[in-house]
């Protein structure tokens, strides 16, 4: 039997990643929109959507931070085998994976005024993802949108850093939504 870390990757990487990326791109372009994705079977504890995002965006060039709950040998092995991404502390991360409460928001790079793109993208595993709750407005949103968010105040603080700041991808089962720094939350 194969080690579990060797399985659960994309079957047809070029095509699976293409479909997955379009779903991720659409959510980032349209905050509040929830899309479902397929193609990854990550180890227990990790949602399909989080697995798909990791496979789609991470590789040896993108250091990843794992919050304690996911900092397990099984998860590390899986990410290493399928993406080759190195694991780092929050301050050096391009991507981070964790639940909201476990992610040290203040530690991640938010980019500089000259290069605001040099900031981390946080993959946040949530138990609940619905188009209701906080009211969103800004780029990508016609009038307003709604999304269940774990913590409005922290997200407002992040948006206040614009153009610097973190971007979030919320994952729940096989569904995901995104919240870029440009979104105003009320």
């Amino acid at each position: 039997m194969q080690r579990p870390s060797l399985t659960g990757g994309f079957r047809d990487a070029p095509k699976d990643a293409a479909f997955a990326f379009r779903a991720v791109m659409n959510t980032m372009a349209k905050p509040g929109e929830i899309n479902s994705v397929t193609g990854a079977e990550p180890p227990a504890g990790l949602s399909i959507a989080a697995g798909v995002v990791l496979l789609t965006l991470c590789d040896p060039e993108t250091p990843v931070y794992l919050a304690p709950r996911f900092d397990l040998l099984e998860v590390r092995d899986w990410i290493t085998f399928h993406t080759g991404a190195p694991f780092v502390a929050a301050s050096a991360a391009h991507f981070a994976l964790g639940t909201w409460g476990e992610l040290p928001l203040g530690d991640f790079p938010v980019g500089s005024a000259a290069y605001p793109d040099r900031s981390a993208t946080l993959i946040v595993e949530v138990d609940d993802l619905r188009s209701e709750g906080a009211t969103l407005s800004g780029p990508g949103i016609k009038d307003s949108a709604a999304l269940s968010l774990p913590d409005r105040a922290a997200i407002q603080q992040n948006a206040a850093l614009f153009p610097r700041g973190l971007d979030f991808i919320f994952t729940c089962g096989d569904r995901l939504a995104a919240l870029p720094r440009s979104t105003k939350v009320s």
Binding site: V24, A29, T56, T62, H94, G140, P163, R181, S182
Partner: peptide
């Protein structure tokens, strides 16, 4: 793709 996501986040 990573650059595209950043570009969408910082219009």
């Amino acid at each position: 793709r990573r650059a595209i996501l950043k570009s969408l986040a910082i219009p």
